[in-house]
Design a protein around this nucleic acid. Structure first.
Length: 268
DNA sequence: GCACATGTTCTCGG
DNA sequence: CCCGAGAACATGTG
């Protein structure tokens, strides 16, 4: 579910329910791949913690607590983070009961999501690997980094080490807006073309945040409602449908083991 | 049974 | 070290 716009939408809503409140009870499911920090340790570390700030870097949420501890949250492919009690089906892995009757639930069917506790002062290899966040990155810098790679431009856009936050939907949408074919080698873009790609991609990310992200299957906002940006997609999931600019059919290919959608006429 | 799914990470060749 | 292909992780839907 989660690319930058979805995670940012969840962050904004969760922040309102969580900041200044204290965790009074922690419920977890059984140990699994999902828990980087074991449920047992998570319970003891999180109990009594008061949230001071909720940040986002790329697709990661970073909860900061009084005293300097941090909780890292990643939604994987099917993660749902909501500011309410969910029916406790087998896919609800973490429930935080907060002061003033607030509840935060984390549900994730495929368990590709991650929860990790970071002790005060401890750094995180996961976070340290990430490039600058796609919304705040210096565009000239990202353009230079992109053009150093020989891989297809779409594969480069998806590389979280170059800039963090873009996933399969917004890479396809950004390249369509820029008129660049996803298979084109990143190195063969001019500086101007690369700048054009990341400028368009970033404005699409911002627009998607305004619409609360894209709901395709599992993603819901923290208030339980659906995102709206899926109604504005131009190419993602549109194989065979007419291109909004030229009318020719959108094609689908596979790149880096992911589906890539584009217009073979408009994107050179 | 088969194909596919908004993500990340690792391995194996070249 | 770079790159691509494929697999793994776990589960659901069409």
């Amino acid at each position: 579910m989660p690319e930058l716009p979805e995670v940012e939408t969840v962050r904004r809503q969760l922040e309102k329910a969580w900041i200044g409140r204290t965790i009074v009870h922690v419920h977890t499911s059984l140990p699994s791949y999902f828990f980087v920090t074991s449920p047992r340790v998570l319970k003891s570390r999180l109990s009594g913690q008061t949230l001071t700030r909720l940040d986002r870097h790329g697709k990661y949420l970073i909860a900061h607590f009084l005293g300097g501890g941090r909780l890292l949250l990643h939604l994987g492919m099917t993660g749902q983070l909501v500011a309410r009690q969910l029916v406790l089906d087998p896919h609800v892995h973490l429930v935080l009961s907060l002061s003033k009757e607030q509840i935060i639930s984390f549900r994730d069917v495929r368990k590709f999501g991650k929860v990790e506790w970071l002790a005060p002062g401890k750094c995180s290899p996961r976070l340290d690997k990430l490039g600058p966040d796609a919304l705040s990155a210096d565009l000239e810098f990202v353009s230079r980094r992109l053009r150093q790679r020989t891989i297809p431009i779409k594969t480069a856009l998806l590389d979280q080490k170059i800039w963090a936050g873009v996933g399969n939907i917004y890479a396809d949408e950004g390249l369509f807006a820029a008129g660049v074919r996803p298979t084109k080698s990143a190195r063969r873009l001019t500086h101007k073309e690369a700048l054009n790609v990341i400028t368009h991609t970033r404005s699409i990310l911002l627009r998607a945040v305004e619409h609360g992200g894209s709901t395709i299957n599992d993603y819901i906002k923290a208030d339980g409602t659906l995102g709206g940006y899926q109604n504005w997609h131009q190419v993602y999931g549109k194989e065979g449908e007419p291109c909004s600019r030229c009318g020719k059919a959108i094609v689908r290919t596979v790149l880096a083991a992911r589906a890539a959608h584009f217009c073979a006429f408009c994107q050179k």
